[in-house]
Design a protein around this nucleic acid. Structure first.
Ligand SMILES: [Zn+2]
Ligand SMILES: [Zn+2]
Ligand SMILES: [Zn+2]
Ligand SMILES: [Zn+2]
Lengths: 145, 145
DNA sequence: CGTCCAATCGAGACTGTGTATCACTTGGTT
DNA sequence: AACCAAGTGATACACAGTCTCGATTGGACG
């Protein structure tokens, strides 16, 4: 099975079938190169007349999220978006204009979380850091002066 | 106008009318003492037969969020919750069992965001840190041994 | 290769969240 | 007390996401 993309491989190594709809969705996601919403994917699929059902798209997203190949981001608007990513703990910086995102490592956040746990008395299980702004390209595009 | 609660005062000082439904909702929110969903509030209001319309509840939440008296939290499940809070920049630690939340200050996050901006080249406008775990009370309740 | 069946799919109904509309009510000012 | 812009409630609507079920298929096995 040569030429498997990262997401296609993710399906396989997690023990799930590599079906035609999943392959197509993996391609669509990878072609996007950034954060996307479920609606984006549905539109992409319809646009290419791939005959993929809406439910299948939501199921694929859910599965990729469980596998750890996709992570949900909550945009400042309240909408949900998803971004492809590796399994290690990390966070994302997302461009609010083109949706391209960069992963960042822990950068001391683990220590910060422990500090917060100590100060508040809470036992902290999950933390989430999301950053939004303009990527280098979009900065140039929006400040042409 | 004596005995105004924090949220009631927030409506007034932001230049909005202090109506009967808003007063009632302010009370319901303050009685909850923690993060709550819109559905929670709707249920509370219906339970007390206050005759407050669903739309009014969503409008009040939206308004309080604009004012800065309420902040949206995105739970790990993907649901939206809201937590009462002051206007200064801060973040929240939310108990995943009882929903009580504690505000925490910047704690070096501003510096971390600047560091990330420098490393990634992104211009960062918004950052969001949310922490979830068990509050001291719920730790005791769940580890009785 | 052909068989087989659990995993998966597509269609469509359904639930839940949040918004828009619009005629009616009311807080707060004069 | 009178006024009216701000606010409200009922309802219709738009959209996200889930569930069900009969039909399809990946890939294991012989
Ligand atoms: Zn960009
Ligand atoms: Zn982290
Ligand atoms: Zn608790
Ligand atoms: Zn901060």
């Amino acid at each position: 099975m040569p030429d498997l993309t990262a997401l296609e491989t993710a399906f396989e190594t997690a023990g799930h079938r590599l079906t035609r709809p999943r392959r197509a969705l993996a391609e669509l996601i990878e072609a996007r190169d950034g954060a996307f919403s479920a609606a984006d994917l549905v539109a992409d699929a319809q646009g290419r007349r791939l005959g993929i059902g809406r439910a299948t798209i939501f199921r694929a997203i859910e599965l990729l999220e469980e596998i750890g190949a996709l992570e949900r981001i909550d945009l400042p608007t309240g909408e949900h978006a998803y971004v492809p990513c590796g399994p290690a703990h990390h966070h994302h910086v997302v461009c609010r204009r083109c949706s391209r995102s960069v992963e960042i490592g822990d950068l001391g956040l683990g220590a910060l979380a422990r500090d917060i746990a100590r100060k508040t008395g809470y036992r902290i299980d999950v933390h989430r850091l999301e950053l939004f702004g303009l990527c280098p390209d979009c900065q140039l595009a929006s400040v042409p002066a």
